[in-house]
Design a protein around this nucleic acid. Sequence first.
DNA 1: ATGGTGACTTGGC
DNA 2: TGCCAAGCCACCA
Length: 114
Amino acid sequence: MSENSATEKSYPDEPSREQRIYQALAAVPCGNVVTYGQLAELAGLPRAARLVGRTLRNLPNGTNLPWHRVINAAGRLSLDTDSDSGQLQRARLQDEGVVVTNGRISLSQFRWRP
DNA sequence: ATGGTGACTTGGC
DNA sequence: TGCCAAGCCACCA
Protein backbone atom coordinates (compact mmCIF):
# COMPACT_ATOMS: atom_id res chain seq x y z
CA MET A 1 0.00 0.00 0.00
CA SER A 2 2.85 2.31 0.52
CA GLU A 3 3.43 2.68 -3.18
CA ASN A 4 1.30 2.05 -6.17
CA SER A 5 1.11 -1.61 -6.93
CA ALA A 6 2.51 -2.61 -10.27
CA THR A 7 -0.99 -3.36 -11.40
CA GLU A 8 -2.48 0.04 -10.74
CA LYS A 9 -4.46 0.74 -13.82
CA SER A 10 -7.67 2.54 -13.15
CA TYR A 11 -7.65 4.84 -10.19
CA PRO A 12 -6.70 3.23 -6.89
CA ASP A 13 -4.71 6.24 -5.74
CA GLU A 14 -4.52 8.18 -8.97
CA PRO A 15 -0.86 8.79 -9.78
CA SER A 16 0.51 12.23 -9.15
CA ARG A 17 0.38 13.17 -12.80
CA GLU A 18 -3.11 14.53 -12.57
CA GLN A 19 -2.31 15.95 -9.16
CA ARG A 20 0.54 17.95 -10.63
CA ILE A 21 -1.69 19.23 -13.37
CA TYR A 22 -4.23 20.34 -10.78
CA GLN A 23 -1.59 22.17 -8.81
CA ALA A 24 -0.07 23.87 -11.83
CA LEU A 25 -3.51 24.93 -12.98
CA ALA A 26 -4.42 26.30 -9.57
CA ALA A 27 -1.38 28.55 -9.80
CA VAL A 28 -2.54 30.29 -12.95
CA PRO A 29 -3.58 33.80 -11.91
CA CYS A 30 -6.83 35.48 -12.79
CA GLY A 31 -6.71 37.43 -16.04
CA ASN A 32 -4.12 35.11 -17.57
CA VAL A 33 -4.19 32.03 -19.77
CA VAL A 34 -1.91 29.08 -20.49
CA THR A 35 -1.83 26.58 -23.31
CA TYR A 36 -2.27 22.85 -22.79
CA GLY A 37 1.35 22.26 -23.62
CA GLN A 38 2.53 24.99 -21.29
CA LEU A 39 0.44 23.67 -18.44
CA ALA A 40 1.81 20.20 -19.03
CA GLU A 41 5.32 21.56 -18.87
CA LEU A 42 4.58 23.56 -15.73
CA ALA A 43 3.32 20.34 -14.21
CA GLY A 44 6.59 18.65 -15.04
CA LEU A 45 5.04 16.62 -17.82
CA PRO A 46 6.50 17.89 -21.10
CA ARG A 47 4.71 16.78 -24.25
CA ALA A 48 1.67 15.69 -22.28
CA ALA A 49 -0.70 18.28 -23.68
CA ARG A 50 -3.23 15.63 -24.58
CA LEU A 51 -3.15 14.30 -21.07
CA VAL A 52 -3.95 17.77 -19.82
CA GLY A 53 -6.92 17.95 -22.14
CA ARG A 54 -8.18 14.59 -21.01
CA THR A 55 -7.69 15.52 -17.38
CA LEU A 56 -9.62 18.75 -17.72
CA ARG A 57 -12.37 16.89 -19.46
CA ASN A 58 -12.71 14.69 -16.39
CA LEU A 59 -13.00 17.55 -13.94
CA PRO A 60 -16.24 17.66 -11.96
CA ASN A 61 -18.66 20.42 -12.84
CA GLY A 62 -18.37 22.24 -9.57
CA THR A 63 -14.59 22.27 -9.55
CA ASN A 64 -12.77 25.23 -8.15
CA LEU A 65 -9.92 24.99 -10.60
CA PRO A 66 -9.60 27.69 -13.30
CA TRP A 67 -9.93 25.25 -16.20
CA HIS A 68 -11.28 28.08 -18.34
CA ARG A 69 -7.79 29.64 -18.43
CA VAL A 70 -6.47 26.77 -20.52
CA ILE A 71 -6.50 27.26 -24.29
CA ASN A 72 -4.66 25.70 -27.23
CA ALA A 73 -1.41 26.80 -28.84
CA ALA A 74 -3.27 28.66 -31.56
CA GLY A 75 -4.78 30.97 -28.96
CA ARG A 76 -8.20 29.42 -29.54
CA LEU A 77 -10.70 27.88 -27.16
CA SER A 78 -10.75 24.14 -27.77
CA LEU A 79 -14.31 23.77 -26.57
CA ASP A 80 -17.26 24.14 -28.92
CA THR A 81 -18.57 27.65 -28.66
CA ASP A 82 -22.01 26.10 -28.77
CA SER A 83 -21.55 23.89 -25.74
CA ASP A 84 -22.41 25.15 -22.28
CA SER A 85 -18.84 24.73 -21.12
CA GLY A 86 -17.62 26.64 -24.13
CA GLN A 87 -19.83 29.59 -23.40
CA LEU A 88 -18.97 29.46 -19.73
CA GLN A 89 -15.28 29.55 -20.57
CA ARG A 90 -15.69 32.55 -22.83
CA ALA A 91 -17.82 34.36 -20.27
CA ARG A 92 -15.41 33.73 -17.41
CA LEU A 93 -12.40 34.86 -19.40
CA GLN A 94 -14.02 38.07 -20.48
CA ASP A 95 -15.12 38.59 -16.91
CA GLU A 96 -11.47 38.37 -15.89
CA GLY A 97 -10.47 40.94 -18.46
CA VAL A 98 -9.17 38.52 -21.06
CA VAL A 99 -10.20 39.72 -24.49
CA VAL A 100 -11.78 36.98 -26.56
CA THR A 101 -12.39 37.81 -30.21
CA ASN A 102 -14.04 35.16 -32.32
CA GLY A 103 -13.06 32.46 -29.86
CA ARG A 104 -9.50 33.63 -30.08
CA ILE A 105 -7.13 35.16 -27.53
CA SER A 106 -3.94 37.15 -27.97
CA LEU A 107 -1.40 34.83 -26.36
CA SER A 108 1.36 37.41 -26.46
CA GLN A 109 -0.83 39.59 -24.33
CA PHE A 110 -2.53 37.25 -21.87
CA ARG A 111 -0.29 34.20 -21.69
CA TRP A 112 0.99 33.70 -18.18
CA ARG A 113 4.73 33.55 -17.59
CA PRO A 114 5.86 32.39 -14.17
C1' DA B 1 -3.31 -6.78 -29.36
C1' DT B 2 -3.88 -3.56 -33.15
C1' DG B 3 -6.07 0.66 -34.58
C1' DG B 4 -8.90 4.85 -34.10
C1' DT B 5 -9.85 9.07 -31.47
C1' DG B 6 -9.22 13.18 -28.71
C1' DA B 7 -10.57 20.07 -24.23
C1' DC B 8 -2.92 18.93 -28.18
C1' DT B 9 1.75 20.75 -30.44
C1' DT B 10 5.04 21.77 -33.91
C1' DG B 11 6.88 22.21 -38.49
C1' DG B 12 6.25 22.66 -43.48
C1' DC B 13 3.69 24.65 -47.55
C1' DT C 1 -4.06 32.75 -42.08
C1' DG C 2 -5.14 27.95 -42.89
C1' DC C 3 -4.63 22.91 -44.08
C1' DC C 4 -1.66 18.62 -43.58
C1' DA C 5 1.50 15.25 -41.59
C1' DA C 6 4.00 13.44 -37.45
C1' DG C 7 4.68 13.00 -32.81
C1' DC C 8 2.67 12.16 -28.42
C1' DC C 9 -0.08 9.97 -24.40
C1' DA C 10 -4.13 7.65 -22.49
C1' DC C 11 -8.52 5.38 -23.43
C1' DC C 12 -11.69 2.33 -25.77
C1' DA C 13 -13.74 -1.06 -29.16
